[in-house]
Design a binder for these strands. Sequence first.
DNA 1: GTTAGCAAGCTTTTT
DNA 2: GCTTGCTAAC
Length: 796
Amino acid sequence: MHSPESFPPAPAALLQGLNPEQLAAVTLPAGHALILAGAGSGKTRVLTTRIAWLLSTGHATPGGILAVTFTNKAAKEMLTRLSAMLPINVRGMWIGTFHGLCNRMLRAHHKLAGLPQSFQILDTQDQLSAVKRLCKQFNVDEERFPPKQLAYFIAGCKEEGLRPRDVEVHDSDTRKKVELYQLYEEQCQREGVVDFGELMLRSFELLRDNDPVRVHYQRRFRHILVDEFQDTNRLQYAWLKQLAGDVVDGRLVTQGGVIAVGDDDQSIYAFRGARVGNMQDFVREFDVRHQIKLEQNYRSYSNILDSANALIAHNSRRLGKNLRTTQGPGEPVRVYEAPTDLAEAQWIVDEIRQLVREGPMPRSEIAVLYRSNAQSRVIESALFNASVPYRVYGGLRFFERAEIKHALAYLRLLENPHDDTSFMRVVNFPPRGIGARTLEQLQDAARGSGCSLHDAVSSVPGKAGANLGAFVAMVDVMREQTQGRNLRAIIGQVLESSGLLEHYRNEKEGADRLENLDELISAAESFVTQEGFGRDAVALPLDETGAALTQSPASQGLDPNRPLLQQPLVDTDTGETLSPLAAFLTHAALEAGDNQAQAGQDAVQLMTVHASKGLEFDCVFIGGMEEGLFPHENAMSDQGGLEEERRLMYVAITRARKRLYLSHAQTRLLHGQTRYNVRSRFFDELPEEALKWLTPRQQGFGSYAPDSRAASAYGAGARAGFGFNAAAFASPPVPPRKEEPAHGLRVGLAVFHTKFGEGKVLAIEGQGDDARAQVHFPRHGTKWLALSVAKLTVVE
DNA sequence: GTTAGCAAGCTTTTT
DNA sequence: GCTTGCTAAC
């Protein structure tokens, strides 16, 4: 390494425009540091500039840096920004998600980790079906032990770093669960598959139990950067600790530096194992010398920031941080109270149309956020009726679609015939006369001889056995036919010979699915070109110094422009690389693809508050600001729950740059029942001077008052949760939806049908009892309805 | 092998 | 109340 004096100065352009805190963070001296980065404080910029600074000053080589994120999106963003900042290549850099990096490590040391090199990765769906299969196999009472819950239990154990033998057992139910956890582990091992949790845990154990490997990586990664540190779980923290150094005499002795960037106020994933406490632990255990707060916000006007600051101040146990801006107050935060959820949606849409017309504001700069997905429907429907283009985030991602998973299952069987999860998925899809009874026989046989389904096929007699044999033979033929061919050809061949294409061609609604399968080929194609698979696959230089573990293909042959994360994964002992197919399957499992619907035109953005984290918009609507919804009733069982809801609200508020709208409805249709909701307590935690009430602020009714009767009813844990029953009060704030007489309809009116939802009146015919109306429903098409029968309500 | 009908669930979610 | 996923019947 260089001596400190020999470091060249950083290029001036790199550090230009950084504020003092950012500059301090970027140029931190060696050692561990915690950076508390508030919303909109330029966190990603600091992170990437830090890396660029380390590299350009010679403090580090690309191979000596490890930067880890939670999402592929964040990792990509970092790589993109970094390559824009520095002309040097990013070769040798480990920048990726926790799971992506673990995957890489496990492929490289698969023998030590006890895995086949081409192990496949189970996503959450796959994991659940594997658990279901296991439960059937061992006759588990699925009433007492729902597979879903078991899968959740297993994932939870792994997140805590617990193997079956480590789990404390106090009751018989837990004992049974642990037993099944153990059996599940054996099943996965036999099949050569790992789930997401296993990826992390196995990688951790690899480091913990193999001194040379651990020492190698410790020596190599002198600079570790962690993004969104507040979201790390116990296992991820332990993994980082392994990489950072060893515990000697109870003290952590480290050689490099870990820079953790996070914001405790934006910790919104405790429900899936995130542990904010890791931040405090980090400061203590790593003996952190430098703590830097990034509080300068470059995103929002001060009315918005003041609101966020005031709200979050109600949380206890904060590390303490206050956002500030040099921008003016900006517009007030607008608050609206609607009589119903429908009216709220309508108001949002009206407001959006006005913004677009008069702003003029691009629709893509307008976001509607909500606490739970169920809330999107009313808003979607209102937008649809007003012909406002919108885009909903969330839902099925590309690689999670059924037809894609089918195709991938065939591909996995090519790689590994013993992958029983994939076997079961497609053994009778498309249908080939292999029924449930046959499969039961097959599974019994497999369990009897402790082998895979594939190997048990020959022991099933008769016609059933012949059908199974034909399936296996078909897959074998496919494997032979695709030998040595490129990825595109392999997938094309498999889609054809499996009968998938044929099947969907004959299906009425199969056009979309065929299109998606086509898309799969394109995805494989671009994977190959981007990653350079197929041609000159080169081994990965694990160590720039050519240390023992490296196979060292030197540095030639690697394309500096392609992200190393996705370069061929290599066995460090043999130099053996993954086949393009296996690599593609890994890619498919680790990166489920876009989860946003129809991209394209300028559209209003709809998403949950969780999904909005990390994004920003000129204008943000937050709907459903009601007790029970936001904060959500299910989150309120403990103090921590409320605080997490508050952080969630904090995240939501800080998404807005210029304009923020908060709205709530007095009544809302939820689970088929009209609920009378009280205004969210969060309103009472916002600074009055930053707000503008578009509707009169009501006292008593519709407001959350900690000492009121209402609150004590909640405190007592009223059955109804937060939605109070009309009967509980002398008079409800607003009468429930009124039914209009048939003659109240006009062409063009928006109406609500109890079965078909909201629609638009296209035509009206007839008189009195014969009156009929033609109504278009976005979800059910156009229908003629007899007004004397159909229950239609006019939507305000 | 497809379709209808019924029961269950219903906060947030990435890998 | 609505959607989804599974069983049961055609």
